[in-house]
Computed example of a mutant assay.
Amino acid sequence: MRKSAVALCGVAAIGAVALVLVPATVPETSEGDTGLVSVVVNGGRTVELGPGETRTFPVEVTATDRSGIRTVDPIGLWGPNYATLKVGPMSCVPVDATGTVSRCTGEATVEATSRVLFDDQAGTWFVDLRIQANDGDRYVSKSAGGFSLKRAALLDEASCPATASDGEKIRLNGRLQRAMWDEHGYIPQQGTAVYLQFRDVGSNTWSTLTAVRTDHEGRFSIQLEASRSGTYQWYAPGDKWTGSATSAELPITVGPRQ
């Protein structure tokens, strides 16, 4: 971060004001032919964290320089509202015959119970790093790559009759909650769209039938006519701050009307 200070000093003897400039701290910049090829966090997947969970996930940096890559150090992760995470020591291994390209790997750990992670810090995070080459060149970036760290969602209390007659009215229910890192528990996720999906017997494909919205307790319900045997499930796609969730599968056998 660039920092500077300006001091105004009054010179009483001559009644003038002198301006004294304190040298600024200049941020480190990239130098030479060192280049970033890619940054991959958690294999490219979202990191979802429940209210009492601890997750350790990989951080992978691929870089290039004519002299070869010596190390990636320092490296850290930062997110909304001044959130930061440390990445452990990176191990670099050349991935080509010339030794100009190396893949460096390390791990980061995030804890929902550590009191250093809060609900408003979910969302898009970035990688802050310095890549150092064998010849002294370097590549520096505070946002070398991005990834998502989200509050886990829970879709429970899903229910559906196990059997029904063709044309019979049936009711399906469920509840959607999301992790609350601040209080180490789950809270209802209200006003959120949840999708009812169906899969025919013998099929591997889910089709979306309709959508409902959760109430203030995170609960939802729908009534429909049973028409064929298969399996229902509820699905919530999540958003920028909350992960997706899928309910338990709800099989139903539909027989002839009695």
Rank of each mutant, 00 (worst) to 15 (best):
T71P: 01
V41T: 11
T34L: 12
T64F: 08
A63L: 08
E53V: 09
V59L: 11
I75G: 06
P58A: 12
G52A: 13
D65M: 07
T56Q: 12
S38C: 09
V41W: 01
E60V: 15
R70I: 10
V72A: 08
T62G: 11
R66Y: 09
E60R: 13
V37D: 14
V72Y: 01
P51T: 12
D73C: 13
V59R: 04
V40Y: 01
V40L: 11
G76T: 15
T62H: 07
L77E: 02
L36W: 05
E48S: 14
N42A: 12
P80V: 04
T34M: 13
R55W: 07
G43W: 05
T64K: 10
V39T: 09
I69W: 00
G35I: 10
V37L: 13
L36H: 07
G79R: 02
L36K: 08
V72L: 07
P80H: 00
S38P: 02
V59W: 00
G43M: 07
D65V: 08
G68Q: 03
V47A: 05
V41I: 14
L49D: 02
W78A: 15
L77R: 02
R45D: 14
T34A: 15
R55T: 14
E53Y: 04
L36C: 09
G68V: 03
R70N: 12
L36I: 10
I75Q: 03
V37W: 06
P74M: 09
T62I: 14
L36N: 05
E60Q: 14
W78C: 14
P51A: 08
V39C: 04
T54E: 13
V47I: 13
L49Q: 02
E48A: 15
G43N: 10
G50K: 01
E48Q: 12
E60N: 12
A63K: 04
T64P: 05
G68M: 05
V72K: 00
V72W: 00
L77G: 05
G50M: 04
L77Q: 03
G43V: 05
T46L: 06
V72R: 00
R70V: 09
R45C: 08
L49F: 00
S67I: 10
I75E: 04
W78F: 14
V72Q: 06
I75C: 08
T46W: 01
V59C: 06
N42Q: 10
N42D: 09
